[in-house]
């Protein structure tokens, strides 16, 4: 491999890593602000103008806090838990195509860390690894509440992973590829051959199923049973303090960012937008793709906002309702969606 390629990828990884951390950081701030607006309040406004420095203050607080490891906890696993949670949250961004190929100087640079031909599968693998952080942490705490939270997280993620996988199969039947770059390129622009190009308009049911499952996978309300504080004190992170707790909370926000990016890429055209060819021609090879990156981030922000909107609207499911929804409704619906997609794509073409 050429050295320049290594350097290029390294810089890209650093940038994406930085951006996802900053986005996650400011998601915590945005969550509190959004919650406040939904409840006719003001939200954090003391640290810096409009409270913009709040995440820094929170981070400093997290680092300063006393670090408590319970004596009966399993020492190594107790540390592995949060590390694994944040690690798996971060590596999901590797296969997401952030933009079209960009011209810098005389080089053509891919705005994607790696375009593996099983990108969607990779994402699923990484997302399902995420539950290990929660499980190990909950188990290592040697606390019944933590363990219950971990069990809930595990069974919930397993249940919803099936529905998620099935919902995506219908999408893959249309796209015919697992590479996220190709899936995005197929959604070029907004309108082609007399129909929308974005997959959402071809797979609306699949998208809704995928989104519901994404809520469950990221442990967001209404599926935040693993950390259900009314029943389980703090859920799987009851025993955690200091930055280890911070990592768990942070991992949740990074997960939210990643799943928003995935939803935007798979169903809402990624970096594509209406009249993008004209805009690309006008802006040239450097700024045109960057504009596309901006569009993708706009979509991601909207999805994150939607995550928060739902969180502050609906209450948590009861545990049996959660399982009912997963197994008795989402999975049959996903299978029906596959059958329907198969029929339509066979007979309409």
């Amino acid at each position: 491999m050429e050295l320049s390629l290594v350097i290029e990828k390294f810089i890209l990884v650093a940038i994406i890593f930085g951006i996802s951390l900053v986005v996650a950081m400011y998601s915590t701030y945005a969550e509190r602000k959004v919650a406040a607006f939904f409840q006719d309040r003001v939200g954090p406004n003391r640290a810096g103008p409009l409270g913009i420095l709040q995440p820094l203050a929170d981070g400093a607080k997290m680092f300063m806090k006393e670090e408590i490891i319970p004596t009966r906890a399993s020492g190594l696993l107790f540390i592995v838990g949060p590390s694994l949670a944040i690690l798996t949250a971060c590596i999901g961004t590797a296969v997401i195509p952030w933009g079209q190929q960009i011209v810098i100087g005389s080089n053509l640079i891919d705005l994607q860390v790696t375009d593996i031909n099983v990108g969607v599968l990779y994402l699923f693998g990484v997302v399902s690894l995420g539950v290990y952080g929660v499980m190990i942490g909950g188990w290592a705490s040697n606390n019944k509440y933590s363990l219950l939270g971990a069990i809930r997280a595990a069974s919930q993620n397993i249940s919803y992973e099936i529905a998620m996988g099935l919902s995506i199969i219908a999408l893959l039947m249309i796209t015919g590829t697992l590479s996220l770059r190709e899936i995005t390129e197929q959604q070029h622009g907004f309108w082609a051959h007399g129909y929308f190009t974005w997959n959402f308009f071809k797979q609306p049911v699949g998208f809704i199923l995928f989104m519901v499952c994404a809520f469950a996978e990221t442990n967001r309300t209404p599926f935040d049973l693993p950390e259900c504080e009314t029943e389980l004190v703090g859920g799987y992170h009851t025993e955690y303090s200091s930055m280890k707790l911070g990592f768990y909370l942070f991992a949740e926000y990074i997960n939210m960012f990643v799943s928003s990016a995935v939803m935007a890429t798979l169903y809402f055209g990624g970096y594509n937008y209406p009249y993008m060819d004209a805009v690309n021609n006008a802006l040239g090879g450097t700024w045109g793709p960057l504009f596309g990156v901006g569009v993708l981030f706009l979509k991601i922000v909207l999805f994150i906002f939607f995550f928060m909107w739902v969180r502050w609207t609906i209450p948590r499911f009861r545990y049996d309702q959660l399982m009912d929804l997963g197994w008795k409704i989402l999975i049959p619906l996903a299978i029906a969606n596959i059958v329907l997609t198969g029929l339509v794509s066979t007979f309409l073409k």
């Binding site: 959004v34 406040a36 607006f37 939904f38 006719d40 909107w309 502050w312 609207t313 609906i314």
Partner: peptide, 16 residues
């Protein structure tokens, strides 16, 4: 859920 989102959405633009 949609009607719930509509209600909270209205509150989002209300003056605090």
């Amino acid at each position: 859920i949609l009607s719930g989102l509509r209600i909270t959405g209205k509150h989002f633009f209300r003056k605090s």
